[in-house]
Amino acid sequence: KVFVPPFKTKSHFHRVEQCVRNINLEENRQKQNIDGHGSDDSKNKINDNEIHQFNKNNSNQAVAVTFTKCEEEPLDLITSLQNARDIQDMRIKKKQRQRVFPQPGSLYLAKTSTLPRISLKAAVGGQVPSACSHKQLYTYGVSKHCIKINSKNAESFQFHTEDYFGKESLWTGKGIQLADGGWLIPSNDGKAGKEEFYRALCDTPGVDPKLISRIWVYNHYRWIIWKLAAMECAFPKEFANRCLSPERVLLQLKYRYDTEIDRSRRSAIKKIMERDDTAAKTLVLCVSDIISLSANISETSSNKTSSADTQKVAIIELTDGWYAVKAQLDPPLLAVLKNGRLTVGQKIILHGAELVGSPDACTPLEAPESLMLKISANSTRPARWYTKLGFFPDPRPFPLPLSSLFSDGGNVGCVDVIIQRAYPIQWMEKTSSGLYIFRNEREEEKEAAKYVEAQQKRLEALFTKIQEEFEEHEENTTKPYLPSRALTRQQVRALQDGAELYEAVKNAADPA
């Protein structure tokens, strides 16, 4: 009996079949050797039954030995992979106790070099992304696993290492050393996912494991997988089976570590959520998911006594290639979404967006559910497929024609109009009788001069009248001057009331 372990994989059965074929070849070789050395001598003659019994015993022994070898290899492979993971953990823990100096990766050096680079648009010959069927993509060489990738399942995607490095690299049990020196050690079933790439990135030279977390790596792994898979599906003739590979993924992860961690360069969404930049600038984002077409959003009224009003709005997920943020759509954008003119994977350019929800600054990976962008249809338009995601180089609003605006589409950043004729300025005056008088600039100047002159005359007449009244009042209130005199003690004692006392003090030479 042959024991088949439960962890036997498909590739292992192929190895067993190869072992059986080797056994058959060995039986034929032994039979030929016996036939060649046989003689007519009775002493050296061998019976056919004995030959059959001899071959049967040897074949059973060969099967036992061969199956033992074939079954020991998976056990040795699992042990070797576990040992490799333990050694990798030791290296990572050692790096956590040490000071790790930055070491730029090859992709970062290539992108920051001064050498001329070919743009993506030029690389594909100016073509637009194709909409091929699954059968056509498979014909071009795009794998079935790559075709099924979307923004939702990209984080759970796993590579089959045998498809990229062969069985020999897997059966060594030491892992695969990729670009920039990172070791990718697959799981026991030969797959490599987000956890394996997290360990590989931490093991890469120049990466400090204390500065990154699993959530950070898982997030970037998701967007990298989706981007590379979309590249192959959009341009299968040029990029089929060339973008989505373990080495390319680790290069992209190391580039993002060099950019965001070592160089402290943040993406647009991260700057906006951390309240270090405004969402009103011109942005280019990609639609990554349609969350809900009728979500209940509560809006607190300005009146504190009234309860919060709830309304149903559409919510989608937007990404700048590094992080994601939810976006709230207005009714015109909801209609565009339902008509199929706004789809997943499409790039949009927007201006004047507003970050609503929590007023506190937070990182994109720790954002609350209520935090989202509020965008309007009058400031949102489709962007070209090759436009770079993030802040647009020109932060000013983009012009829009009047015919493309919506009455309930929110604010308009800039309108593109043509002035056919400029009319002169006219002034309108409404009289006390209810009549309207229109004048041009010259007539208005004359009328203004007349008004100023009449106003000045009225002011002069009023001043003269007030002055005359004041002088008349002064004459009536002025009394004849009485010289001061000193009162004797008897006169002071003779004073009867306060009025006489006041007059005496007033007319005294020295009231003190």
Rank of each mutant, 00 (worst) to 15 (best):
L81H: 09
R85S: 06
R85G: 05
D86Y: 12
Q88L: 07
I92T: 08
K95T: 11
R99C: 14
R99H: 14
V100D: 09
G105D: 02
G105V: 02
S106R: 15
L109F: 10
T112I: 11
S113F: 07
T114A: 13
T114I: 10
R117Q: 11
R117L: 10
R117P: 08
I118T: 10
V124A: 13
P129T: 06
S130C: 13
L137M: 14
G141S: 12
F157S: 03
Q158P: 03
Q158R: 13
F159V: 02
F159C: 04
L178W: 05
G181D: 05
G182R: 03
P186S: 08
G193V: 00
G193R: 04
G193E: 03
E196G: 04
F197C: 07
L201P: 00
P205A: 07
G206D: 04
G206A: 06
V207L: 04
P209Q: 05
P209T: 07
L211P: 04
L211R: 15
N219H: 05
H220R: 00
H220Y: 03
Y221H: 01
I224F: 01
K227Q: 01
A229G: 08
A229S: 10
A229T: 07
M231T: 08
M231K: 07
E238G: 07
F239S: 02
F239C: 05
A240G: 14
N241S: 13
N241K: 12
N241D: 09
N241Y: 08
R242G: 08
C243S: 08
L244Q: 04
L244P: 01
L244V: 11
S245I: 13
P246S: 04
E247V: 09
E247G: 10
R248G: 14
V249E: 03
L250H: 06
L250P: 00
L251P: 04
L251V: 10
L251R: 09
L253P: 03
Y255C: 08
R256G: 04
Y257D: 00
D258H: 06
T259M: 09
E260K: 00
D262Y: 10
R266S: 15
S267L: 00
A268S: 08
I269V: 11
K270N: 07
K271N: 06
M273T: 15
R275G: 14
D276Y: 09
V284D: 01
V284A: 11
L285P: 01
V287G: 02
S288F: 02
S288Y: 04
S301F: 13
D309V: 11
L318H: 00
L318R: 01
T319A: 04
T319I: 03
D320N: 00
D320G: 00
G321W: 03
Y323F: 04
Y323C: 04
V325A: 12
V325I: 15
K326N: 09
A327T: 10
A327V: 04
D330G: 05
G340C: 08
R341G: 15
L342V: 07
G345S: 00
I348S: 01
L350P: 01
G352V: 04
A353G: 14
E354V: 13
A361V: 13
C362G: 07
C362Y: 12
P364S: 06
P364L: 07
P364R: 00
E366Q: 10
A367D: 07
L371P: 07
L371R: 11
L373I: 12
S379R: 15
A383P: 03
W385L: 02
T387S: 12
L389P: 02
G390V: 03
F391L: 08
P397R: 04
S404L: 06
S407G: 11
G410E: 06
C414F: 06
D416H: 04
I418T: 08
I419F: 05
S432P: 14
